Amino acid sequence: MKKSIFIVSAVALFMASCSSDDDSTTGGETALLPVDEAVVAPFVGGANEPNQVFVDLSSAQETSIQRDSWDLGFYSGSEFRVILNGSIKMAVKQLNTTDITEVQEEDASVSVGYTTLADLGYVDNPTGILTGVGNGEGTAIAEVSDNDEENKVYLVNLGYEVGTTTPEAGSVALDGEARGWKKIRITKQGNDYVLQYADLDATTAQSVTISKNANYNFVFVSLTNGQTVNVEPESDKWDLNFTGFTNYYPYGTSQITYYFSDFITTNIHGGTQVYEVVVSDATQTETAYADFALEDVEDADFWVSITDQRVIGSNWRNGGGPSSGPSIKDDRFYVVKDTDGNIYKLRLLALTNDNGVRGYPVFEYELL
Rank of each mutant, 00 (worst) to 15 (best):
L32S: 14
I264H: 02
V39T: 14
G77Q: 07
T228H: 11
I5V: 08
N191M: 11
L32K: 13
Y258W: 06
V112N: 03
N151K: 01
A202E: 08
G325E: 06
I184N: 03
L346K: 03
G46Y: 02
A47M: 12
T187G: 05
P50V: 02
V278T: 12
G138A: 03
P50A: 01
L158F: 12
A214L: 15
T25M: 15
Y334I: 05
T116F: 02
G321R: 06
Q189E: 13
Y160H: 12
N213I: 06
D148I: 10
I264V: 13
A350K: 00
D148P: 05
T127M: 05
V133W: 15
S9I: 09
K237A: 12
T187V: 10
G190K: 01
N315L: 12
R358F: 12
E62C: 13
A293F: 12
D354H: 07
L33Y: 15
N135I: 09
T352R: 00
R81S: 04
Q104M: 04
T187N: 04
E29S: 10
T30R: 15
G176V: 06
E37N: 12
L95Q: 00
F43A: 10
T115P: 13
S111T: 08
G359S: 07
Q66M: 11
F292A: 01
G121M: 00
L200F: 05
I184A: 00
I141A: 09
T25R: 15
Q284M: 06
F302G: 08
T203L: 14
G86Q: 11
V335D: 07
K182L: 11
S111H: 14
L348I: 10
A142H: 02
N267Q: 04
Y160N: 11
G170Q: 07
P250H: 02
P126Q: 02
P326H: 02
Y289E: 09
D354F: 10
A118S: 05
S19A: 11
D201Y: 00
G27M: 03
